[in-house]
Nucleic acid binder design. Structure first.
Lengths: 347, 347
DNA sequence: TTTTAGCACTCGCCTCTGTCGAGTGCTAGG
DNA sequence: CCTAGCACTCGACAGAGGCGAGTGCTAAAA
């Protein structure tokens, strides 16, 4: 990839076009570059270089006699080969840390706050994917009798995620008995990952069938029901949607509608974030790379977050392809690390 | 208010203008009304009537030689005095009930689904305000030791609302001991409203101070901490935001931004819904009546929902003032009642 | 007194036109 | 290999003019 742009000068021109385009959002011409980027060559020369870059597919002209705009490939090359990612300034870090002041006492609150931090520092939309229950470690199960034959199950994971389900049972069970079930299960399931819990329960049910122990089989049945629920699902917090309205490329209502539809639908975005969960470090999807159809002019910058060794979810920033990558990449990186640290300390 | 529009004909003209305006979204002229609404008078007569209505402040002209548009007051008069609210058709009801099929096993899911139902049937945005914890009846409290000196409190209300908080304590407490606290508190607080729970706890703490019972005073202290959390807060589910983009009056990006900002901010909308919680039945706020500044062209139609006698929250539809009130008012009404019924059955 | 027909007038919307300026590609000369 | 010069292209913008919907007013009819 790096070989695509051979000369030092080509690189500098590409960089200049991209920086200028990110700043202004309009096609950039040869003159502007010659002037502002101290390359001390004439516009005509720049034009020749730009023509070369266009042939390589890194730039393109919206129409004859307009300036150049970077293509997705151009941005990709820029990010991979030219952009030097510097650290976030001390002041920025300080300010981000301060946004969290007060400390969150609920996981939901912490994650939601994170989406706001991401959005307000990037001036784009911030997203945070919540942990999947099934990937976390079992901590506790609890049954509450809401009323006759209605039982609520509360499931708590090691990481402090709480999930509850309500269901109907055939016969009424007293709260005392439910408490017994709970104690039994809590002993049995300690320290298993939740997706293991499911298997373990089935296994135990086989055993109990033979023993005909009513209490235990009942307990197993109940918890079985609770887990039938989709513990595979993640939620998605989105902050700063309206920031996107400020981007001139989305002045077009059609574009906007597509993005807001994706926000409403969520599933597509969740899939994407899910994919980038396994890959460590910062991930960047430019335009159509995200494979969210109809989302050509949108980029994602994501990073997974964790608690201890357990990768819990992904967070990131969504914005136009014309985004200030040099600022937002370190932002996402730092925020993911900070969140991980906070989760580890609290949960 | 009714006296404002004296003649039968005036009323019919006002109605015609509003219906036509709701349908088309553009100012309506005298000719269209004379033709379509079978008043069997000439456009010129209609014009005279319209001039009268304008003088009363029920209609206005965006500019000379444009048709008329209803004012907020006009809509208000129409809704209060002219509109006959009919029932939702059997087919519609059936379809709404069917949207809920599968039954919700979690309160959150049920409420979120409701916001979607409201939006898809109204073609506008649907909102549902979640119950406030403090207004519900205590059912159960549970402490979970996450790790050394980190405790999670889980609070369950009679209506099936679950709230959890994590906090740090000075000294480590074993899970067994925490369970004891739980049992003690569950006995003591049974059937109290949550806002009473707070008072009761303080009261008990006074007593225990004298008795120096370590276990009890510790339990009280913990639950006290859990309740310091904002159990006053409500969440807001919003469905179908993007439907609003289809309304031509919001083609203007500025307008749109204001509304989406309010969605993001949420607090203003929560306040409004909160207000209309105490008032029974369907509430309608037209344009500036909602007192959400910068929201002139937006109307709210809301209705509280309950479980048994306990009013839990509010739901409603947000759309342009130019909304199909005759359809949406019964929709909101029916949905609120249906939700109430479902809550009562499940929780 | 109320309703209607006729008419002149207003104003937003659309299209057409011409001008301006930014930016290009090409060529010839340094 | 770089640069200056030049003709050309194309979008953005502003102004002119025509169209059509809709009005208010007046005078006559019911």
């Amino acid at each position: 990839m790096k070989g695509l742009v051979r000369g030092e000068r080509s690189r500098r021109v590409l960089e200049a076009v991209i920086l200028e385009y990110i700043k202004g959002g309009v096609p950039v011409g040869s003159r502007a570059i010659a002037k502002k980027y101290g390359l001390s060559v004439s516009p005509a020369t720049i034009r020749n270089v730009m023509a070369d870059l266009e042939e390589l597919g890194l730039l393109y002209q919206p129409h004859t006699s307009a300036g150049r705009v970077p293509t997705e490939l151009g941005l990709r090359v820029y990010i991979d080969a030219i952009l030097k990612i510097q650290q976030l300034s001390i002041a920025d870090r300080e300010q981000i840390r301060r946004s969290y002041q007060g400390g969150a006492s609920r996981l939901e609150g912490l994650l939601q706050e994170t989406s706001k931090v991401l959005s307000s520092f990037s001036k784009q939309a911030g997203v945070v994917l919540t942990p999947r229950l099934s990937h976390t470690v079992f901590k506790r199960i609890e049954f509450v009798r809401l009323r006759a034959s209605m039982v609520m199950t509360i499931l708590v994971s090691q990481a402090g995620i709480v999930h509850n389900t309500v269901f109907e049972i055939k016969e009424d069970i007293s709260q005392e008995e439910l408490d017994k079930y709970g104690r039994y299960l809590n002993d049995m399931l300690q320290d298993l990952a939740l997706h293991q819990v499911k298997a373990r329960l089935l296994e135990e049910m086989q055993k109990e069938k033979v023993l005909f122990d009513r209490l235990l089989s009942k307990a197993l049945e109940l918890s079985q029901k609770a887990l039938q629920e989709n513990i595979e699902n993640s939620e998605l917090y989105i902050g700063g949607r309206t920031n996107l309205l400020d981007n001139p490329e989305f002045a077009d209502v059609e574009q906007m509608r597509r993005i807001f539809n994706a926000f409403e639908e969520k599933s597509k975005i969740i899939d994407l974030l899910d994919k980038s969960m396994s890959a460590g470090g910062v991930n960047i999807f430019i335009g159509s790379e995200s494979e969210l159809l109809d989302m050509e002019s949108v980029s994602f910058i994501t990073s997974p977050y964790a608690s201890g060794d357990e990768v819990l979810g992904t967070l990131g920033v969504i914005g136009p392809t014309r985004m200030d990558y040099s600022r937002i990449i370190p932002l996402v990186d730092y925020t993911a690390k900070l969140l991980s640290k906070m989760l580890e300390e609290t949960f």
